[in-house]
Design a protein around this nucleic acid. Sequence first.
DNA 1: CTGAAAGCGCTTACAG
DNA 2: CTGAAAGCGCTTACAG
Lengths: 330, 330
Amino acid sequence: MSVGRQQPGKRAATQADVARYAGVSGAVVSYVVHNGPRPVSPETAARVREAIRVLGYRPNASAAALRTGSSKLLGLVLPEFDNSIWADLAVAVSDCANARGYDLITASSGGDVTLEQQHIQSLSGRQVEGLLVTCVEMIDPAIDGVADIPTVLLNVFSDAPGVTSIGVDARQGAIDGVEHLLSHGYDTVGLIAHRGIDLREEGWRQVREAPLGPIERDASTRQGGYDAARRMFGSPDRPRSVFVCSDMQAVGCLRALWELGLRVPDDVAIVSFDGTVDSRFTAPPLTAVQQPIATMARIAVDLVLDGPVNGVHHRVVEPTHLVIRESCGC
Amino acid sequence: MSVGRQQPGKRAATQADVARYAGVSGAVVSYVVHNGPRPVSPETAARVREAIRVLGYRPNASAAALRTGSSKLLGLVLPEFDNSIWADLAVAVSDCANARGYDLITASSGGDVTLEQQHIQSLSGRQVEGLLVTCVEMIDPAIDGVADIPTVLLNVFSDAPGVTSIGVDARQGAIDGVEHLLSHGYDTVGLIAHRGIDLREEGWRQVREAPLGPIERDASTRQGGYDAARRMFGSPDRPRSVFVCSDMQAVGCLRALWELGLRVPDDVAIVSFDGTVDSRFTAPPLTAVQQPIATMARIAVDLVLDGPVNGVHHRVVEPTHLVIRESCGC
DNA sequence: CTGAAAGCGCTTACAG
DNA sequence: CTGAAAGCGCTTACAG
């Protein structure tokens, strides 16, 4: 059984071990591992490859990184993991990174600016070649002090000079979602919002002069959406429809409505924001303003790797896309 | 504005830069950064700290890793990310790692054994000090060849000598879930299972001599659960209750039942396996056999870091815990 | 086509 | 309490 061969304390083979075994110099080992930059005769290359196989040699990435200054590592900092939108982003970024030969270190700040700052410092110490940061706060001082690392802010709308950011037009997305509900003839559109400032909330306010309905703010979690919905729909003057600022909150909202015996979309119509896989499998499936996560991930990775990034104000805004499912009553 | 200070091309400060600025040797810089192992006078230390601050010095982790042989990096390989149970595991492992001063590189194999193998090789090249692997196959040859890295298999039930693994008693968990349904007096208990061999399926079979109900196998995703449920509950001889082998599949199943106009638990009672946060916020919330993910993550991290691990057959089995919610009809 | 050697940025005995 | 120096394992001009 192959796994049985695991033994404790075995020292990893080095380039020098391979060179000795194959009777060549370390340089040649490097040449065959990287297929260059100098040519190697087929016979020698074969001997080296055999030695690599026999000794189980894997080049020490730290040594290579130190020598070349290239760690082949990207860093991703997220507010939290327990939210499909960030989990989706992590997957998408990881895939893009891998496709370009990079590994990804992901760190979650739990919404704590201090922790976020620590992670960024730690990642920069690891000489990551690019840093993707989804800030806890709109513009975050933590990205300061890592000026030597190409950084892009994700899902944040910074107009600061010298900062590159990418995100959707959340205000317009919210407007699209709210107007879709209005187009169904619902007289009121409540809002379940995040805590803190949010362009989605601004979008909702902007659709009409007068408020469209009640607003409840809570955490961007299932529980937050649940609590907000219990408050909003527990009273008799509940709105006829609601725009929810994240899929996570919408999942909690759906659960609250179910408990209250309110049917979706018959009693309450819902449109949510994010369009993660969660929104496709609720009952009923959620009509949602979809963020193009995969596209944003790809652009962000390309940006940090191919720049220009730092010191350049570059602001990529991707459009959202309303996906009609059943929760809106279409 | 602090972020405005980002400039392109700035070279990161090195230990030598700090030493020069503070008028000390590199050794002293190292001593104050690590608070040892040699003492430094308070005045000198203060000067060094000032230099570090001014120059924005962050020690090069690659150089330190190369010198000490300790990368302070852990590796986690998962089948896929788009499943709450793995996302939860990634969070839990990341937290444990961070608490011990380690960063985590997470790689997802997408269920592909070749890709899994590549990731393991890549991670081992990065000199990760521990490797946590959730195998695509029950016992995986890919963990071979990295004998110098402490490795533990997660959520896998290997009796192979020389392999350390940790997971729940899935067979017993399934038995508990199925028996709970039977205790409600339901005459049939269907099974929505994973593809491939699965101890949960064995547990379900083991409860009675005769089959308890129909079985449908599909992917461990929301879509897989949805498809399986459509097949199982689309026919008139549908079971009165069902045990679903993962929360993801249960979410899809709930959606299918909703489409078919079947109420939970009145028409169909459900118990699922995993107990992730998803199971708490479905409508109705799912009674579930809960895996102690945080506990397993902690034990796994402690094992790879404090061993003994490789070459030792050590098999940690954690109990599951049935969490009663509403989908079972209690 | 191949080898000897420098140097990436650290940490840590060793000497003072 | 501090410094000079070796060496971790690579990659890459440079010389042959």
